[in-house]
Amino acid sequence: MRREWLVVGAIWAALTALGEFVVTTWTMLPEGYSRESHVVNEAYVLLLVMAVPVFAFMVTMLGYSIVAFRHPGATEDGPNLGNNKRVVWIWLAVTAALDLAVLINPGFVGLRDIRGTQSADMAIEVVGQRWSWTVTYENGATSTTEMVVPVDTRIRFDVTSTDVLHSFWVPGFGLKVDAVPGRTTQMYVTTERTGDNADDSRLRVQCAELCGLSHADMAMTVRVVERAEYDAWVEDLKNNPPAAAQQAAGATATTAAGEQNDQQAGAAAGQEG
């Protein structure tokens, strides 16, 4: 009796140790490009760490029972042990405690961290339509082929849709938010690391909500660049819009120039302060 539990305990401990070793060292999570993606990854690893002992316990019990209590045929009954209130209550207490722990961290803690403050250094408007994304920067420049954002910046994406539901997802940022027709949804991202879609396919804007025919193709590349490079790029985009965007932007492009310069100066000052 006691020996049985010792064996089970030993297997459980071994499996748990092995599992914890695997999930903490051999991480299958690719590193993200934003503070939020780190929150996600931490929460992910924490959940795995908490899941391992539970999983190991179940596997141990299951495996041990199968190996130790095999008995071919229905010739003999096991002991008449239908209920053990104490075990049930202990089990309930343990699962409830685990649940509470998961709920507090990563649950509430992660929720707080991933949402962060409701302030941003810059805002980018994103419009989804079947089947492309249009990104509008603060200076009025728009792009439908590539999204470039500065590093070390807290960005607010104002996302909406003109037709059906889409979902604005940059896998490398660790977040997504739906583009809902008739509403503007917001997503805050704090970039932390530069990167280029050419090196990492997760740096792309991907529609994550089924939106019909070309849903899978509804993607655009993303680059996270240094602030100076971004400023130059967005300025260049405004002055030399791509052919398609040129007609749309049209006459307003020149008048918005002064405004936009002021805004940039303001944003830069805010960063220094």
Binding site: M58, M61, S65, G78, W91, L98
Partner: peptide, 21 residues
């Protein structure tokens, strides 16, 4: 997850010391 856990408990609790065919 708490009530679902009870179902798992029932599964392993029943198998424990049984005559598993």
């Amino acid at each position: 997850s708490i009530p679902t856990g009870v179902v798992f408990l029932a599964a392993i609790g029943t198998m424990w010391k049984g005559r598993i065919w």
